[in-house]
Design a protein around this nucleic acid. Structure first.
Lengths: 239, 239
DNA sequence: ACAAGTCCATGAGATTTCTCATATTAAAAT
DNA sequence: ATTTTAATATGAGAAATCTCATGGACTTGT
């Protein structure tokens, strides 16, 4: 929480800048400028054609889309360092999905229109892009498959463990229910059940993890009705 | 259904080969060989490190993963033309997901080990790869969000419309239930309901679409209990 | 021809998850 | 200070979906 200087000439900034430039095979500096977003600020506006390719060096954002019927799906959380708006640059899509900063974010904005050709012929940059697209695909795929294959109970237990660095869980239920793709009501049900079973304890400051082992068991779907381990054959099984 | 010659020197083959070579900025031919897979044959073996990067010119395959508990999630269908095994080439992942041919497939196998460096410095190839990764990401994202935001009824109606070019639906229920991420039993329930409502008619040769309009309505979630349009507020809504 | 495996099909009952309604509280706006 | 808005909570009932069981039809291997 040390308050940083906002100037762009500090040693720290230079290192960050150097790291960023290392993603390109040519000198990108003529086309970039530093950017900041406040928590809650929109980075890509859903449905519009973005003017910049962004690279976040700091912060966390959420990536979502709205469906015609008005429902919003939170697709992923984006963690710095990462590119934002790559697909739009490539022309793989005309208009952007929505991306909104969750925490204050810093990074660079690249005037992609003006150096599109250079970017698209730079093997170094393209390689990085492929890597990051792949990584994200792998991550999304895991989440996707997990969401389909197990009930909220397991996913939530997992999420709580991942989101509680100090054994204290204090995410917003509204956000989490979106992310996990279930109704707010249902999230609260399961959460209340965890509390009732003594796995969590509710405090004004957040939910305290009281029985981590039980949470881990729940994350594996191994809790409830004892551990008959090899049982049930939901959907197809390995032969 | 004209029976093609299996020789590799026909004019058709040469065009296909030329199209394929156009994805690279250098001469790829020294590193490739033609391949075929029968329907049901494994293209990438789940958990193993693949020796080749494949490019399918013909056919359809399925991409899936098995979870620890033995459940199998069908992630996507892969349609030619497409690469298979790109992420493994890039090193974005160590071991492959499973990919199995659904129909007889033809294509090329690239000995990626031997030309990895060339591939990874070829801007043309990398650009194509980025595009295809992006496209797939967009597609997956749509499916993912749709799966979460609407019940099977709508997704199935959609799927039937998409999978019935002549108004006749005859996919395997087992495959479809995997793809749509629901139990076989539930798929049958909804299908039976469509029949009961006269939207489909069951014939020995398949299900005939009898009321396409109703199916389209169902795909939009607009059927059942009339069209009160703006109702319900599942998850969050646009403000 | 027969056994084994796979797909199709249907029923019964349980679990998960949703919608809707309604308070309470906390933060933001005026 | 007061109104408005967003987040937290909880209850009741319904819809979606799952598991398990069971049987018939059709393929395929022997």
């Amino acid at each position: 929480m040390t308050k940083e200087k906002t100037g762009e000439t500090g040693a720290g900034s230079r290192n960050i800048l150097a790291d960023f430039c290392a993603h390109f095979g040519f000198d990108i500096t003529p086309w970039i400028s530093e950017v900041r977003f406040e928590g809650g600020e929109e980075i890509l506006c859903e449905g519009e054609r973005p003017d910049f390719l962004y690279y976040l060096t700091e912060g966390r954002a959420k990536h979502y889309i709205s469906r015609e019927d008005g429902q919003v799906s939170l697709l992923t959380f984006l963690y710095a360092p990462c590119f934002i708006g790559e697909m739009e640059l490539l022309g793989a899509r005309r208009t952007a999905d929505g991306v909104t900063a969750l925490t204050p974010c810093r990074g660079y904005a690249i005037r992609a229109h003006d150096c599109r050709e250079k970017l698209l012929s730079d093997a170094k940059f393209l390689r990085e892009l492929c890597m990051s697209l792949s990584d994200r695909a792998v991550r999304n795929t895991e989440i996707y498959s997990r969401n389909q294959s197990c009930p909220l109970r397991a996913r939530l237990a997992d999420f709580i463990l991942a989101a509680s660095p100090n054994g204290i869980y204090r995410e917003r239920h509204t956000e989490v229910s979106e992310f996990l793709g279930v109704s707010y009501r249902h999230l609260l049900y399961v959460l209340a059940d965890f509390v009732k079973r003594g796995m969590l304890e509710k405090q004004p400051s957040g939910y305290y993890i009281r029985d981590e082992a039980a949470l881990r068991a729940a994350a594996k779907g191994a809790d409830l009705q004892g551990p008959p381990a090899e049982k049930g054959h939901r959907k197809s099984k390995i032969s």
